[in-house]
């Protein structure tokens, strides 16, 4: 777990950390690839909510180059594109490692696929 779709929704939320707090950078990751059910409606419905640049860059940081730098227009999304998007969003699982904020440096550790997004008292 920690799929890239989740990663694309999470920003650093330390008090006062409001700029350059997204996306979080993966660090020391251990990755597993696991097949997921392909559902076009889910992907199309979610696409407008994605931060595309962050998704592409993050995928590249995990050695996946399959996504184009700009998303195609909705009527030009072919199956090939949707399959690639499906794979990046749902089939790459970061099991161990951490997510680090580029702005404040807060480290959100990931263990057994569950990220710890809690904050310490001085960060509230």
């Amino acid at each position: 777990m920690v799929r890239l779709i989740t990663h694309n929704l999470l920003a650093c939320h330390v008090r006062g950390c409001t700029t350059n707090n997204f996306p979080l950078a993966f660090k020391d990751v251990e990755i597993q690839l696991r097949e997921a059910e392909f559902n076009q409606d889910f992907l199309r419905g979610f696409l407008p909510k994605l931060e595309w640049r962050a998704l592409v860059d993050t995928a590249k940081s995990l050695n996946d180059q399959s996504l184009p730098d700009t998303p195609p227009a909705p009527e030009q999304m072919d199956t090939e594109f949707l399959k690639a998007l499906h794979h990046v969003l749902l089939e790459i699982h970061v099991e161990e490692g951490a997510m680090v904020c580029a702005n404040c440096g807060h480290v959100y550790p990931i263990s057994n696929g569950i990220p710890n997004m809690l904050l310490q008292e001085h960060e509230l």
Partner: peptide, 13 residues
């Protein structure tokens, strides 16, 4: 996914 966080201090972008 499952994440550990407090909903009153949530990280949703």
């Amino acid at each position: 996914d499952c994440c550990t966080f407090d909903i009153t201090r949530n990280p949703f972008r």
